[in-house]
Design a protein around this nucleic acid. Structure first.
Lengths: 311, 311
DNA sequence: CGATCTTACGGGATTCGTAAACATA
DNA sequence: TATGTTTACGAATCCCGTAAGATCG
């Protein structure tokens, strides 16, 4: 006992048109084929749906009652198809990403602005957290993909290189290193240093880069803005990746690119290996991949503010 | 772009089972055939619904979203089929009949009592009106069929003989005709007569039966109970069809069958010619036809009360 | 007699199941 | 290697459209 949607559509067309010939035309079928379709439906249901004489077609009482059921089925059916279309056209959907706060503040907005303009129906969730929780969110399924400084290539996760992020010296105007011809690790180690927390990727890169030297750790802070304030107040100096420099475009501060070999933070695009991305996420993923941050958002070594992006 | 319910059922089965093999078994299909079904659905919708490796099957985000739509469609679908089954089993439905008050009070209750016991889900509407409005209700579609004293055979309506109803003399105990050997039309014409209204079928039969004689019309009443009261009070006599005699089973009254040739009220079962009856109506129709009133509900000529039917 | 639904029938596409190939843990 | 999905392919089925038949106004 199999009833197809085509039969329901044929039935509704016949109930509307009250003529096999016209209804068959609506369904793009020959009239005998259409007649057979109705006949099969009646046989499958076990009831007669139409009283038909050669001159007149009218629904039986059971046909009238079945019509409202059939219309409900078809309405749900169309809604389901429309839902698929919405997702195909990215008119609906949801994408959840996790990424480093530095990317979230400086680079992400322009990406999302364009994405949002193209696909206004898609819900967007952003988690601006450190690399560890970024990866954890992808693993747990909370986030579709992440941008993090951990090469998280596991059986579950797949990571691909996204961008690299050169380090810059951050110091107050007038500091000896602000104008020194070349800045080497041992120069940095000579001054009090403002560190980020040990869990941050920045910290881990720096510890590795100056090895076996030790920096003069003045303090460890969690927020970049805090580090900025400390440096501006003359408490110490710091080294920061280029993507964070917008925090340090402040009067009284100087940033200078360093080109120490090996001191480049690598950022990875991390996603689950087994699970495919939703269409909305896949689209954003591709746009992210196609438009990584510029290598050096600021090239000025002096106090000139970096180029601002429109808000 | 054609999507069948089988594909939706297969999809839901796979979403539940997360295994092509098990889901195929549930759908009574070989595994390759089942796989093709899913593949066709994905192609028709234009989206991938499942991430599948040889070891693991899991819905994509689009698949998850489509699953709730598909379940809604199938739920409506099942509801539609259940509605048909209900009507087939007469667990639901509606039947509307129109019939003469005499039949409605005396004979119909036992019919409906049995019908109701068999099919408690069917709504029943009864119009206990005179023959004219009975037929009119069938013509207008208000009633599925009617029992009336009019042979309403028109292009629209089809009438078939249902039962015939012999007339009885009704007079007070002690009236000369109560004991007279044989009662002829001229005997009746000799006494004051209590008539029913001119629109009633009874009246029309009587006028024809005594022709060319004229009865002594004392009054015309609309209700049988009123006529009964008048006769019991000794104001006059009357002639009534057997089906109405339960009104006259009263102390002080005598009823006697008459066997005047031609004086038999014929009652017809009337239905529309073009429109088929609902299953509920068809069933009642058949029960009605199979169980007409007995020819003579009372055979006693004296004041013995007629046999009562259980309420 | 004309319009309309049903039945008859041949050709073509679809779908099924078996068997082999392929992929992952 | 073992389990489970996809591909290949021959056979049965189903479905469509043309043509003829039946029926009612």
């Amino acid at each position: 006992m199999n009833v197809s949607t085509r039969q329901l559509q044929a039935f509704v067309a016949l109930a509307e048109q009250r003529s096999f010939t016209r209804a068959a035309a609506l369904c793009h079928l020959s009239q005998p084929a259409f007649s057979a379709l109705i006949g099969q439906l009646e046989e499958a249901l076990g009831i007669r749906l139409f009283d038909r004489s050669t001159r007149h077609v009218a629904p039986t009482p059971e046909g009238l009652s079945f019509e409202i059921s059939a219309r409900r089925v078809l309405a749900e059916f169309d809604a389901a198809l429309a839902g698929v279309d919405d997702q195909l056209a990215r008119r609906s959907g949801r994408v959840s990403i996790a990424l480093l706060p530095s990317l979230a503040a400086g680079w992400l907005p322009q990406i999302l602005q364009r994405y949002r303009a193209q696909y206004p129906g898609v819900e967007i969730e952003v988690a601006d957290v450190l690399s560890e929780p970024c990866v954890e969110r992808v693993r747990s399924g909370q986030a579709d993909f992440a941008l993090a400084a951990i090469r998280a290539d596991t059986p579950e996760l797949r990571a691909e290189a996204f961008c690299s992020d050169g380090f810059h010296l951050v110091c107050p105007v007038g500091h000896p290193l602000a104008t020194q011809a070349e800045v080497k690790p041992r120069d940095v180690a000579a001054y009090p240093f403002i560190h980020m927390a040990r869990t941050s990727s920045v910290r881990q890169y720096l510890d590795a880069a100056v090895h076996p030297l030790q920096m003069q750790t003045l303090m460890e802070v969690d927020q970049l803005a805090t580090a900025m304030g400390m440096v501006r107040a003359g408490l110490g100096i710091s080294l920061m990746p280029a993507l964070t420099l917008f925090h340090f475009a402040q009067p009284g501060l100087v940033t200078r690119p360093l080109n120490w070999p090996g001191l480049t933070r690598r950022i990875y695009l991390v996603r689950r290996r087994d699970r495919s991305l939703s269409l909305a996420a896949q689209t954003l993923y591709e746009q992210v991949l196609a438009d990584p941050p510029r290598e050096a958002p600021t090239r000025t070594a002096t106090s000139a503010p970096p180029r601002r992006r429109r808000s």
